[in-house]
């Protein structure tokens, strides 16, 4: 990972993007998230997250990206191994 920068990111080029509603993201970050907020695709299925762009880099490295997201879980949770 090269950098973490706060938004908003205006007119920024990207290969793909993951958008998650703020309320859903807060639920996802809970140490033991509620059903439906425990995984990126669960939130996509609920319509509270969406993935756009060229998906190959995401899908070819899916474990990495899901574990990257799960690192944002609150610190009392063991982030490694959750896989989303």
């Amino acid at each position: 990972m090269a950098a973490v920068a706060p938004g908003p990111a205006l007119l920024r080029s990207r290969r793909f993007a993951i958008h998650i509603e703020a309320a859903a993201w807060a639920q996802f970050r809970h140490p033991v998230p509620r059903p439906g907020y425990h995984d990126l695709f669960a939130m996509c299925k609920r319509g509270e997250a969406r993935i756009e762009g060229e998906l190959h880099p995401l899908m070819a490295n899916l474990r990495y990206f899901k574990e990257l997201l799960s690192l944002a879980r609150k610190p009392e949770t063991e982030a490694v191994g959750h896989g989303g």
Binding site: V32, P33, H38, D39, L40, F41, A42, L62, R63, K66, H82, G83, G84
Partner: peptide
């Protein structure tokens, strides 16, 4: 595996 990983409970 990475797709179905989210189907496992936390």
């Amino acid at each position: 595996a990475a797709l179905v990983s989210g189907l496992v409970a936390p």
